Amino acid sequence: MDESLSAENLRALRELLAQVIARYGSLDAFFAQIYRLLDYPTTELPALHADPVAGGRHRLRDAC
C-alpha cells in the first residue's frame, strides 16, 4: 500500500488544518472541544409512548 498523499489530498488536508486552526486556535483546542462534546451529550428527552388501544395510522391490521 502506498503511504504517500496525493497532491489533491495534501491540499485538502492543509485547508482543513487551516480552517480548524482559524476557528479553534490550535489542534489541542479542537480536540478538547471534541472530547467535551463526547463527554457531555445533549439532553435526552423522555420517550413518548403511544396508546396501543387507540391504534393509529401505522397500527397492525387485524387478520380476517
Rank of each mutant, 00 (worst) to 15 (best):
D2Y: 02
E3I: 02
S4K: 03
L5N: 03
L5F: 01
L5E: 01
L5C: 00
N9P: 02
N9L: 12
R14V: 07
R14L: 15
E15N: 09
E15V: 03
E15W: 05
L16Q: 13
L17F: 10
L17M: 06
Q19A: 10
V20D: 01
I21R: 14
R23G: 05
Y24E: 08
Y24M: 04
G25A: 07
G25V: 02
S26I: 13
S26F: 15
D28E: 15
A29D: 15
A32C: 07
Q33H: 13
I34C: 05
R36F: 04
L37K: 05
L37P: 00
L38I: 03
P41N: 01
T42S: 13
T42K: 12
T42A: 15
E44R: 15
L45C: 05
P46A: 06
P46C: 09
P46Y: 09
P46Q: 11
A47N: 07
L48W: 03
A50M: 03
A50E: 02
D51W: 13
D51P: 06
D51E: 13
P52F: 06
V53F: 02
V53L: 08
V53D: 05
V53W: 03
A54P: 01
A54M: 10
A54Q: 09
G55M: 05
G55H: 06
G56H: 01
R57N: 00
H58W: 06
R59K: 07
L60D: 05
R61Q: 12
D62F: 14
D62E: 14
A63Y: 10
A63G: 09
A63Q: 11
A63R: 14
C64N: 06
C64Y: 10
